[in-house]
Design a protein around this nucleic acid. Structure first.
Length: 261
DNA sequence: ATGGCGCATACCATGCGA
């Protein structure tokens, strides 16, 4: 079974990239982020026409996540509020960043972690608050389901080898010690990075800035991840970054990461 | 130190992403 994560930067703009990629790479489940569309306008017909099913949790212009599955989707939950009490969630579900399902007995959580804008900005504070609630959310999910896969755009590079040039990263959003620590607190629940089971060196990235020819120079960051509970980590047989969609005309700035069991 | 590219928007300038 293969599961992929891909920040598509608008599902409508990237629709043929997504359907072409799924046709060439017939996987079980694709988790997408930054769909940037309300659910009423999600392109279900195009997804159905290639033999897939979709469940969306989106909003206008910003954020938005969706699941695209070969089998009919089961047990789909949207937002932190599906699991956590309202007083803990507060306003965090106003931005559509969380959707999950169960596939083959595995609870899969698809996340679009806030970017954070600039260190110490209002958005940065929001990102840290969001990661704290994420820990609570996953703690409850783990009690219900010991087999857990948490994937998505984490907007955090956990290690210096995940950044093409880590110089000055302490002051860079996505790489500050505070953000790393916030994500590590989440992972301490018992989640491990599938990619690092197979690849230990630097130079492998999942996002490249549109500006300054980031992709051509391989000036990228590895911020799109699959985190696994121990049973799944043992079962994982590969985890690869597929650079091909990033080579296309009008690409997303991210490319898919695929884990296989 | 700054802006660079691309997306979306009751839209040709601005907010946002990372």
């Amino acid at each position: 079974m293969k599961i992929a994560t891909w920040n598509v930067n608008s599902i409508r703009t990237r629709l043929t990239h997504v359907t072409d990629w799924l046709t060439a790479n017939p996987i079980e489940l694709l988790c997408v982020q930054e769909t940037k569309v309300v659910d009423e306008l999600f392109p279900h017909e195009a997804i159905q026409s290639i033999g897939y099913h979709a469940a969306a949790f989106g909003q206008k212009s910003y954020n938005g996540v969706a699941l695209i599955s070969r089998s009919p989707l089961e047990h789909v939950d949207r937002g932190f509020g599906a699991i956590l009490p309202a007083e803990l969630v507060g306003d965090l579900d106003d931005q559509k960043r969380v959707i999950s399902t169960v596939i083959d007995g595995v609870r899969v959580v698809n996340l679009y972690v806030p970017n954070g804008s600039a260190v110490d900005s209002e958005k940065y504070i929001y990102k840290l608050r969001w990661l704290k609630v994420l820990r609570e959310y996953l703690a409850v999910l783990l009690e219900q389901s010991p087999s857990l896969l948490v994937c998505g755009d984490f907007n955090v590079a956990l290690e210096d080898i995940d950044i093409h040039n880590p110089k000055g990263r302490e002051k860079q959003v996505m790489a500050t010690d505070v953000e790393r620590e916030a994500l590590r607190q989440v992972l301490e629940l018992g989640l491990s990075d599938a990619f690092r089971k197979f690849t230990t060196e630097s130079g492998h990235f999942s996002w490249w800035d549109y500006r300054s020819a980031g992709f051509r120079r391989n000036a990228g960051w590895r911020i799109d991840h699959h985190y696994l509970t121990p049973d799944l980590y043992d079962r994982a047989i590969s985890c690869v970054i597929d650079r091909a969609p990033r080579e296309l005309e009008q690409p997303s700035d991210h490319t898919p990461v695929v884990v296989e069991f």
